[in-house]
Simulated assay, not measured.
Amino acid sequence: MSELRIGIIGVGAMGADHAERIVRRTSGARLVAVSDPDAARAEELASRLSARVVADPLALIGARDVDAVILASPGFAHAEQLFACLEHGKPVLCEKPLTMDAASSLQVVEAEHKLGRQLIQVGFMRRFDPEYTALKQLLDSGELGRPLLLHNVHRNKANGPGFRSEMIVRDSMVHEVDVARWLLGSEISRITVHAPKPTSAVPDGVLDPQFAVFEMANGAMADVEVFVNFQVGYEVRCEAVAERGSATIGLGAGVLTRAAGHWGGAMPEDFRIRFDRAYDIEVQRWVEAVGRDEIDGPSAWDGYAAAAVCEAGLASLSTGQPVTVDLADRQAVLG
C-alpha cells in the first residue's frame, strides 16, 4: 500500500488537529473522509482539506476507500465504533478512553484477540513525547537502579463549565495512569484519590484539584496532582526516583528571559501545544505500523487497564479510601 487512506470520526479540537496533521505533516497517508454530528463543522474541514463528509460514522468505517480510522469521537461512542472497526478489519487509532468502563473495554480486548491480529492502538501520546521516551530509556537502562517512586503534576489552564469531578479522573488523570504503568513496568494494584477544598474557580460540587496515589504490583508507588483549572497555563511534569538517583522531565524547554526586573519563560495554553511533537510522532509511527500490519504503541489491553484503574479511582474519589483495581488476568485473556 503506497498511501494509507484515513477516515476520522469526530472533528472537534482533537480530530481537527489530527486531520491537519495527516494532510500537512504525515508521510504515506491521505485524509479521505470525516464524520461528525456537527455537519457544518465537518463540511468546513472537509472542504478545506479536500476530503468528503460521511454523515454516519459506521458507514465511514465500512467505506471501501477508507483503509484505517482515527477515532476522536466522544468516549461513549467508542465501543460501537471499535467493534465496527474490528468487524471490517480496519486498523484504528483510538483517542482515550478506549471505552467508558472496564467491562466494555475488556469486551473490546477479547473481540480483538479472537481476530488473531492487533488492530487497535490507543492514543496515549505521552509515550511518543521525546522527553518521556528519554526517561523511559533511562529507567530501563538500569543506570539509576530500580525505580521506587514516580511524582506527576498535570495542570490545565481552564476547562469548560460542563467539566465534572469524574472527568478529572477519566479524561485527565488517565494519562498518568498509563504513564505510571509504562514507566514503572507494572500494573496498578490499588488507587486512592483525595480531594482538598476545591479551587474557587469551579462551581459547587466540582472537586478540583485532585491528588491520587497509585500502588504498583511490583512494589513501586506513584502520585499525581491533577488541577484542571490552574488559571496559569498547561503544565505537565514527571519525576522518577530510583535507588541511585532521580530524573525529571517537563521543566520547560523554552527560552528563559531576564528583563524589567523579572525572569522566566512562557507556558503553553493547552495540551496540543505541549505535546504537538508527540502527536506527530505517534501518528507517523501508527501509519508506518499499519503498513506492516502491526501496531506501534499502547494496545487495547493498555486501554482496558487504564479504564479499570479509573473505575477504581472514581470509587475512591467518592469515599476517600483506597480501592483495589479489579483487573482481569492478562494471560487468561490473551493467552
Results as ranks from 00 to 15, higher is better:
Lys197Pro: 03
Arg48Trp: 07
Ala72Thr: 15
Arg48Glu: 15
Leu106Glu: 03
Ser316His: 10
Gln231Phe: 05
Asp223Cys: 14
Val169Ile: 15
Phe214Trp: 04
Val108Thr: 04
Phe128Pro: 06
Ser172Thr: 12
Trp286Leu: 04
Lys136Glu: 11
Arg48Gly: 02
Asn229Gly: 09
Phe124Val: 09
Ile295Tyr: 01
Ile273His: 12
Arg24Met: 00
Phe163His: 03
Gln118Phe: 01
Val228Gly: 06
Gly123Ile: 08
Ala29Gln: 06
Asp67Trp: 14
Gln137Lys: 14
Gln284Cys: 13
Val66Glu: 13
Phe128Val: 06
Ala220Cys: 07
Arg330Lys: 15
Met173Glu: 10
Ala240Asn: 06
Gly28Glu: 11
Glu288Pro: 12
Leu251Val: 10
Gly162Cys: 08
Arg272Ala: 13
Val153Arg: 03
Arg5Ala: 12
Val92Ser: 02
Ile191Asn: 00
Ile249Cys: 08
Gln137Leu: 12
Met125Gln: 09
Arg285Trp: 15
Arg126Asp: 04
Val193Leu: 02
Leu207Ala: 04
Gln81Met: 12
Glu131Met: 09
Lys157Gln: 15
His194Trp: 13
Phe163Glu: 03
Arg237Leu: 14
Ala260Tyr: 14
Arg292Asn: 09
Asp208His: 05
Arg190Ile: 03
Ala63Phe: 07
Asp36Ala: 10
Ala33Ile: 08
Val228Met: 13
Arg274Glu: 14
Pro196Leu: 03
Glu87Arg: 15
Ile120Ala: 00
Pro147Val: 10
Ala195Phe: 06
Val232Glu: 12
Gly233Val: 14
Ala13Leu: 14
Lys136His: 14
Arg21Asp: 08
His154Val: 08
Trp182Asn: 03
Val32His: 03
Ala180Gly: 03
Ser172Gly: 01
Asn218Leu: 10
Ser35Met: 06
Asn152Ser: 13
Tyr304Ser: 03
Leu251Gly: 12
Ala220Leu: 08
Val206Tyr: 00
Arg277Asn: 08
Val325Leu: 10
Val224Asn: 03
Tyr132Pro: 01
Ala259Pro: 02
Arg30Cys: 02
Ser35Gly: 00
Leu184Cys: 04
Ala278Trp: 06
Gly320Met: 08
Glu110Ser: 11
Met125Ile: 11
Asp140Leu: 14
Pro97Met: 07
Leu183Tyr: 09
Ala212Tyr: 11
Ser318Asp: 10
Ala289Asp: 11
Pro322Asn: 01
Val309Gln: 06
Glu131Tyr: 10
Val206Phe: 00
